[in-house]
Simulated assay, not measured.
Amino acid sequence: MNIDVSNIRNDRSLPSLLYLYLWPLWIFENVNAGSFLERAAAYRRNRSKRVYLPGYTAKWTVIFGMLLAMLAALEGMANLFASWKFPFTLLACGTGILAILAFVVVVMTIAIYLLLTHWEF
């Protein structure tokens, strides 16, 4: 899915601001398009923008921790209220899926940072 970031940068609605605040890949350019010199310039630009990735990693690590805490609370409530066990279990499953996705974003951000830091073009 290709998102036109130029429209999102000018839009000041809450969803677009959340997208810019949380999603780290909007900063980077495609290094697979264009001539060799254009790809090299895009890679150099991406390499210079890698300094923002630890901030995104911290944000997503906090989100991951909050989702794990919510998961533990929902599991505890499911065990505490036997008549509401099924709804709390469903909410815990959904929270667990979101926690896995947050963990994937953390790992992906760290991998991109290490790749841009240690691999020369």
Score class of each variant (00 low, 15 high):
4 D>G: 12
4 D>I: 14
5 V>K: 11
5 V>G: 05
6 S>E: 14
6 S>I: 07
6 S>Y: 00
9 R>F: 14
10 N>W: 00
10 N>C: 03
10 N>R: 10
11 D>V: 07
14 L>F: 12
16 S>A: 15
16 S>V: 05
17 L>W: 02
17 L>R: 13
17 L>H: 04
21 Y>L: 11
22 L>P: 02
22 L>Y: 13
23 W>S: 02
23 W>Y: 15
25 L>Y: 15
25 L>Q: 13
26 W>I: 06
27 I>Y: 04
29 E>Q: 01
30 N>Y: 09
32 N>P: 00
34 G>Y: 09
37 L>N: 00
37 L>E: 03
37 L>R: 08
38 E>K: 14
38 E>S: 01
40 A>L: 12
40 A>T: 10
42 A>M: 00
43 Y>E: 10
43 Y>D: 03
44 R>L: 02
49 K>M: 09
50 R>Y: 01
54 P>H: 11
54 P>S: 04
56 Y>A: 06
59 K>V: 12
62 V>Q: 08
63 I>L: 14
64 F>A: 13
65 G>H: 06
66 M>Y: 08
67 L>P: 08
68 L>A: 11
69 A>D: 05
73 A>R: 14
76 G>E: 05
78 A>R: 10
79 N>F: 07
81 F>Y: 09
81 F>A: 03
82 A>H: 07
84 W>M: 08
89 T>P: 06
92 A>W: 00
92 A>F: 10
93 C>L: 10
93 C>A: 13
93 C>S: 07
97 I>K: 07
98 L>R: 09
102 A>S: 15
105 V>K: 05
105 V>Q: 03
105 V>Y: 03
107 V>H: 03
107 V>D: 01
107 V>Q: 05
109 T>V: 02
110 I>Y: 00
111 A>I: 03
112 I>P: 00
113 Y>C: 11
114 L>A: 08
116 L>C: 01
119 W>T: 14
119 W>C: 09
119 W>D: 07
120 E>L: 11
120 E>M: 01
121 F>H: 04
